[in-house]
Nucleic acid binder design. Structure first.
Length: 433
RNA sequence: UCCUCGGUAGCUCAAUCGGCAGAGCGGGUGGCUGUUAACCACUAGGUUCGAGGUUCGAGUCCUCGCCGAGGAGCCA
């Protein structure tokens, strides 16, 4: 295509000029002798106005028969108009149809059920709401990388295919790998720890897989996780990093995604609260508070979703819960220096009931203790020989965490369900499209 | 794996106590020179998820199955 076309987003700068744009017809209204064409091109929307006695009669009649989502090239003069939401309209003088669909567009202008929308995810992405979500997701990812890279981190990605089951094989997807079995990664953490010993401050970012039959609005079987790992950071340094990262992501969403948050009808004031310092509770304190608030969760258990919601409702910004019992946490977490029943870890809970967005810990750096923990958990020791090497050759205090991108997007965007926060959600009963 | 809810027109949903299968949107036809999910008129459109059962009569009640959603557990 040799024609120079203009993005709808940039139309106000071309007021008074005759321009050409390419896009799709997302709605068409007509008053008999005047057509209103709602056009979108991925950068924005604009109303094209076609008046019967200003264009050839064939063109006017053909335009009336266009179906929703017809792909078109439209030429006309950009005109400022107070009645237009974006401030400008297009007086259409010429319209070329790339394709007028033979069938009616499946997604109507009124509401649809979630099942139908998910079956039509490939078309649903065209809607203004889904475009707002994807732009927010893009911004979250961009600002997270930006924050880490501005703070001396290097991206060192981890493999997605792993040869050993490692921790708890239950949640792993098994795949055929030539003549043997392999597994899809649940986390890149162990590899990030090795990379931290090479580069100091590292992160990995990629898809992770959980073969758990979770059926909740917070779970996907495939989700994206950002996992920083830092040499010589302890538990406290780790939480400072998490706080800084989350604050930067929220601030950048407010800087760049106001229109998207407006489409999502997000209460901005809730996001403007997200500033340091975040609240901190020790696990013990959290349990005490929960029991005062009527929870029945016994001491020693992990917090239920209900518990997380109750706790976060007490605060106006994210909440750290620190130092859980060792028995309910992963083998690689470092034992608490004064209480051997606890580990140096933290969960970061988002406000408004969005729950855990980060799980992190200081890692066990003592060879003997780590071996003992692997044996206690009944894990296959030989699978961790390379991981144990990190404690044999220049062991070092280090810490890291994993942040679930979709949960962060769901929280910042105020989404009801995490599946809207990823372009192609994967859940137990849904792997198409 | 467990608990709860749901499946009726292309879509979103109604249908009273078990008594003629309905509406809006979308489709088709016609009308309208400022519409904002435009509006107005007319019109077509049904194996009520499937298989049994109860009943004079089942979308509705019972049994089993299938599919999906929300929640629990687990986790980011």
């Amino acid at each position: 295509m040799t024609t120079q076309w203009i993005a709808i987003r940039d139309l106000p700068a071309h007021t008074g000029e005759k321009i050409t744009l390419c896009g799709w017809l997302y709605n068409l209204r007509s008053s008999g002798k005047i057509h209103f064409l709602q056009l979108r091109d991925g950068t924005g929307t604009v109303q094209g106005v076609m008046v019967k006695n200003e264009v050839p009669e064939d063109l006017f009649n053909e335009t009336k028969s266009l179906r929703l989502e017809a792909s078109v090239e439209v030429t006309g003069v950009v005109r400022s108009d107070e009645r237009a939401p974006s401030g400008v309209e297009l007086s259409v003088s010429c319209l070329r149809v790339f394709q007028n669909p033979e069938d009616e567009y499946p997604l109507g202008k009124k509401d649809h059920g979630i099942d139908f929308l998910l079956d039509h995810r490939h078309l649903w992405l065209r809607s203004s709401r889904q475009q707002a979500v994807m732009r927010l997701r893009d911004r979250v990812i961009r600002s997270a990388r930006e924050y880490l890279q501005n703070n001396g981190f290097i991206l060192v990605d981890s493999p997605i295919i792993s040869g050993s089951a490692g921790e708890g094989a239950s949640g792993l997807f098994e795949i055929d790998y030539f003549d043997s079995k392999a597994y899809l990664a649940q986390t890149g953490q162990l590899y990030a720890e090795a990379a931290a010993a090479a580069f100091g401050k590292v992160y990995c970012f990629g898809p992770t897989f959980r073969a758990e039959k979770s059926k909740t609005r917070r779970h996907l079987t495939e989700f994206w996780m950002l996992e920083p790992e830092v040499a010589f950071y302890d538990h406290e340094d780790n939480m400072d990093l998490q706080e800084g990262l989350v604050c930067h992501i929220v601030a950048e969403a407010l800087n760049h995604c106001r229109p998207e948050l407006a489409v999502l009808e997000r209460d901005i004031s809730k996001l403007e609260n997200i500033k340091p310092p975040f609240h901190h509770l020790q696990y013990d304190e959290a349990m005490e508070m929960l029991h005062d608030l009527g929870s029945n969760t016994p001491y020693g258990d992990d917090l239920g979703n209900e518990d997380e919601t109750i706790l976060t409702q007490q605060f106006d910004r994210p909440l750290f819960i620190e130092c859980y019992p060792k028995a309910i946490k992963a083998f690689y977490m470092k034992e608490h220096p004064t209480n051997p029943n606890l580990v140096l870890c933290d969960d970061l809970l988002a406000p408004e009931g969005y729950g855990e967005i980060i799980g992190g810990s200081q890692r066990e750096d003592d060879y003997d203790r780590l071996v003992a923990r692997i044996r206690e958990e009944g894990l296959p020791e030989e699978a961790y020989d390379w991981y144990l090497d990190l404690r044999k050759y220049g062991t070092f205090v280090h810490s890291g965490f994993g942040m679930g991108i979709e949960r962060v997007v769901a929280w910042i965007g105020g989404l009801q369900h995490i599946r809207e926060a990823i372009p192609w959600p994967r859940t137990i009963y849904r792997i198409k499209p």
